[in-house]
Design a protein around this nucleic acid. Structure first.
Length: 897
RNA sequence: GCCGGAGUGGCGAAAUCGGUAUACGCACUAGACUCAAAAUCUAGCGAGGUUAACUCCUCAUGGGGGUUCGAUUCCCCCCUCCGGCACCA
């Protein structure tokens, strides 16, 4: 141990030690409890950013903690290495995507090692390597076998910028999840995965993870899946054998229907209107709706506004199977083909959209629900009229009591809904039904850099799956990278041309590749058994390690990745290779790393300055008053804190920070500065504080480490051997152990670091000179140091290792744990408790005095002491004491009148 | 519009059982050390008032109301910010 703290030196030393001793390697061990600690794998862009540093610091802290608690910890990392940027690099600079990707991985691996993250690197996986994507293809075949992968032509989400298809999840809000471009609709023949088959399970199984996942994520998934309970009703079309199926959540309002409204793309339309004079009108209208939707999509910058409701009467009539009434059939732009049945019954009195539509086209409004409670809004209506279109100003959408509804009149909505659905079923014209907003997952991508979809097209045999024995279908090294909207693979003749596995005749390969979210749907299972050549993984090995005990990653994957991987797990369960429903027990979504922005406005656009180029000036209260450039002292505008990015020039390079302050300080600051879920404000002064703290602890250890060589180690000296100062120190030590241990259980890292700082402050307050310390004092100091250092290991592993060694322990912390010599500091609850208490005394709830007490001062003693206290008496004298509340060990409250 | 989450010093935050509001850190102020600066160390640091006195008082956890001996914490209403969804029948 050097006298001074040289982070660079000790970090290199311990990284080397970990590497050569294989400190972080793990194997399955049925004798020990396992813990699977997982962070979302990065895309190998080439450079680690601060957001990465944050996730991996969070995960690593937990991994270290669990190891120190005796768990067999699986803590792996890999690369989400298929995807757009590699292909962009190929288009722009002509590099080969594979080589570009491997170089990036090599660089980032080095960065992660310099951060000192405790991965078992032997388990590293990368999505773009054939030994990995072979199994993507295998899973695809399994789904194909089960009818869960299918091809269909349908309007899909098309990103004009990236020239490829996106899934619904990736184009949520009408914009591309990656580049933000407005998404267009395009008709393409695409492969889909039948995730909707699992919609019900995806909703129901949330019960299993509710306790461990953020409410926010579950809510987002629930909304996305959009389960809706209602009924189908078939309305016969007059004078034809056809029926129009309608989905509604409000069968109870069926007597109020004034029309049946179809989506413009409804397949029945062309059939029913054959030969009708109105066909041309309807076709023209459908075309307009399509055009206007496309226009709105490309104009996604200004969303929000709902489109004006428009429709056209088809001249057809439908028969309400409940009432026998004839209803006109309309086509309207507000009915969506891909939700429910693509058709609705319009009930303007009780649905706002239908109301708006009815007003626009002067359709009758019939009230069939009456309020049941005076807390509900009074529905304006005209008793003399059946049509309320003049009286009602808006729809009444609450449940209530049925009126004007034939035999159902007088029933409550809640009662009528299931009864009417059952009736429809008995009569054969409908029945109860559940629909979902979730649609099937489109996985075809017109890209090169992804896993080829293992399908061969044969003129004779159709779409034939590639036989398992022929996997993987390997990507060629090169292709013509034009950036145009067709898969580059299509131009690689030796890839495309093959023979049909069935008939042996010449055939062509599928040239689309799979969505990269396929790769990440199951990657953490592969970590358990990463080199298996015969299977995606060995089920028994996976059974030991999974499910993931804690998963850390960004909120941006709340719906996409986290929904897909839940689905994939259920699929693997159905194949029989996994034995549970949910892959992730506990989920942590960390906040963004944000930094101050500085800019100057030159006319229209802002030019941004990096925080390192700016000096901040403050007033004497510490408030920021201005910012000036380091170079010329000219002033710049202080902008808000924003996510670190190139466009706002507020990024900070992790490597530079590690070089300046050390990996430990960077990590410590990241975990201390904010709770894990919050956004984290990057502040260089904050990281300086972290170094200051580490240096202080290090200095304390240096000052004491020789005197501690002969400290009593095995058992604590008797209580009366300890000086008052030593007793205080021991109390602080055990209080910190209690707090930090508890903090780890709820991922409260910021308070954990605070507790460790307090312990270090307590060591600073311990003024005994090392050489003059009594054996008992040495014991107390050693106990404090050992506890502090071990509890620091999850946050600053290099510094902890160095100090642990200088406290007389050879071989590294984890070797000690493995050999049973080292374990997480043991809490002595008696020591953690305060010996003497200060009990606050309130009068009428306001703090008026304090009395001294011990842990077992009796209630009546506390009461008497409180009443006798001089300061308290100033508030009670002359008043009548009405009540005295005594909370032992906590407080006394005297109520006076 | 609907559904979530949050609002506490100059700033990041703490108080997970309804019991001393502001732990810990940053920034700031003063002092020590120094020729000087940095670093380090020591002390102070919610607002306002008050005292010979670090004495004591009042107010303060977005605003208003409620429950309670006692509310940052529980309940109701409102405001603001952030996020998700957005004609989903």
């Amino acid at each position: 141990m050097d006298e001074k703290y040289y982070p660079e030196k000790i970090e290199e030393k311990w990284q080397q030690h970990w590497e050569t001793t294989g400190a972080f390697r793990v194997e399955r061990d049925d004798q020990r409890p396992k813990f699977y600690c997982l962070e979302m794998l990065p895309y190998p862009s080439g450079f680690l950013h601060m957001g990465h540093v944050r996730v991996y610091s969070i995960g690593d802290a937990l991994a270290w903690y669990k190891r120190l608690r005796g768990f067999n910890v699986l803590h792996p990392i890999g690369w989400d290495s298929f995807g757009q940027p590699a292909e962009q690099a190929a288009i722009k600079r002509g590099v080969q995507p594979g080589a570009w990707t491997e170089e990036n991985i090599a660089h980032m691996r080095g960065q992660l090692k310099r951060l000192g993250v405790s991965y078992d690197w032997r388990r590293e996986i990368a999505a773009h390597r054939p030994d990995y994507y072979k199994w993507d293809q295998w899973f695809f075949l399994k789904m194909h076998e089960r009818g869960l992968a299918y091809k269909r032509t349908s309007p899909v989400n098309w990103c004009p910028n990236e020239q490829t298809v996106l899934s619904n999840e990736q184009s949520s809000g009408g914009v591309c999840w990656r580049c933000g471009a407005a998404v267009e609709k395009k008709d393409l023949d695409q492969w889909f995965i039948r995730i909707t088959e699992y919609a019900e399970q995806l909703i129901n199984d949330m019960a299993e993870i509710e306790a461990g996942w953020p409410e926010r994520v579950l809510t987002m998934q629930r909304n996305w899946i959009g389960r809706s309970v209602g009924a189908y009703i078939d309305f016969p079309i007059k004078d034809t054998p056809a029926k129009v199926r309608v989905f509604t959540t409000r069968v109870d309002t069926v007597y109020g229907a004034n029309a049946i409204v179809l989506a413009a793309e409804h397949p029945l339309l062309s059939e029913l209107l054959e030969g009708s004079s109105l066909k041309a009108d309807v076709d023209r209208f459908a075309e307009r709706v399509r055009a206007s939707r496309a226009a709105r999509a490309s104009n996604a910058a200004a969303p929000g506004e709902e489109e004006e409701k428009e429709g056209v009467n088809t001249g057809l009539f439908a028969v309400n199977p409940f009432s026998g009434e004839q209803l006109p059939v309309w086509v309207a732009n507000y009915v969506l083909m891909d939700y429910g049945a693509g058709a609705v019954m319009s009930v303007p009195a009780h649905d706002e959209r239908d109301f708006e539509f009815a007003q626009r086209y002067s359709l009758p409004v019939r009230r069939v629900i009456e309020r049941i409670s005076h807390e509900q809004e009074q529905i304006a209506h005209d008793e003399r009229e059946l049509d309320q279109s003049l009286a009602m100003k808006h729809a009444f959408t609450d449940y209530g009591i049925l009126v004007n509804s034939g035999e159902w009149s007088g029933k409550l909505s809640e009662v009528a809904i299931p009864e009417m659905a059952r009736y429809a079923e008995e009569q054969g014209f409908g029945g109860g039904a559940v629909t979902y907003r979730l649609r099937d997952w489109g996985i075809s991508r017109q890209r090169f850099w992804g896993a080829p979809i293992p399908i061969i097209y044969c003129d004779g045999c159709g779409a034939v799956p590639v036989p398992e024995k022929d996997l993987p279908v390997v990507l060629p090294e090169r292709a013509a990278f034009t950036g145009a909207g067709e898969s580059p693979l299509a131009s690689v003749a030796e890839f495309v041309n093959t023979t049909c596995p069935k008939c042996g005749k010449p055939a062509r390969r599928e040239t689309d590749t799979m969505d990269t979210f396929v790769d990440s749907s199951w990657y953490f299972f592969r970590y358990c058994d990463p080199h298996n050549e015969r299977a995606a993984f060995d089920p028994a090995t996976v059974k030991y390690w999974t499910p993931v005990d804690r998963y850390v990653g960004g909120i941006e994957h709340a719906v996409m990745h986290l929904l897909y991987t839940r689905f994939w797990t259920k699929l693997m369960r159905d194949i029989g290779i996994v034995s549970f429903n949910e892959p992730v027990r506990n989920l942590t979504t960390q906040g963004m790393v944000v930094a101050e922005t500085f800019y100057r406005e030159d006319g229209e656009k802002k030019s941004y300055f990096n925080p390192s180029e700016v000096n901040i000036e403050r007033d004497d209260k510490g408030r920021v008053i201005s910012a000036r450039l380091v170079g010329d002292g000219s002033s710049v505008t202080i902008g808000p804190f924003e996510k670190m990015s190139k466009s706002t020039n507020n990024g900070v390079d992790p490597d530079e920070m590690i070089r300046a302050y050390g990996a430990d300080a960077v990590r410590l600051f990241m975990l201390f500065a904010a709770p894990v879920e919050n956004d984290l404000r990057w502040q260089e002064t904050g990281i300086e504080g972290a170094v200051r703290f580490l240096r202080r602890v290090y200095t304390f250890v240096w000052r004491w480490h020789e005197s501690l060589q002969d400290a009593p180690q095995k058992s604590a000296p008797a209580h009366d051997q300890f000086s008052a100062a030593a007793r205080t120190l021991r109390h602080e030590t055990h209080r910190a152990i209690a707090r930090v241990t508890e903090g780890f259980e709820r991922m409260s890292y910021n308070t954990n670091v605070a507790a460790l700082m307090e312990l270090s402050n307590a060591l600073g307050d311990f003024q005994v000179v090392p050489e003059q310390a009594t054996p008992a004092e040495r014991f107390a100091v050693l106990e404090a140091f050992e506890s502090l250092v071990l509890m620091l290991a999850p946050f600053t592993p290099h510094a902890a290792e160095e100090m642990w060694e200088s406290l007389g322990h050879a071989g590294g912390i984890l070797a000690g744990v493995r050999e049973g010599r080292v374990r997480w500091p043991q809490l002595d609850e008696a020591l953690a408790r305060r010996e003497e208490l200060e009990i606050p005394v309130q009068v009428n709830g306001k703090l008026r005095g304090r009395i001294r007490a011990t842990l077992d001062t009796a209630e009546d003693e506390l009461r008497a002491a409180a009443l006798a206290d001089e300061k308290v008496r100033a508030w009670t004298d002359g008043h009548e004491v009405v009540q005295i509340v005594v909370v032992p060990r906590r407080l006394v409250n005297i109520v006076v009148r």
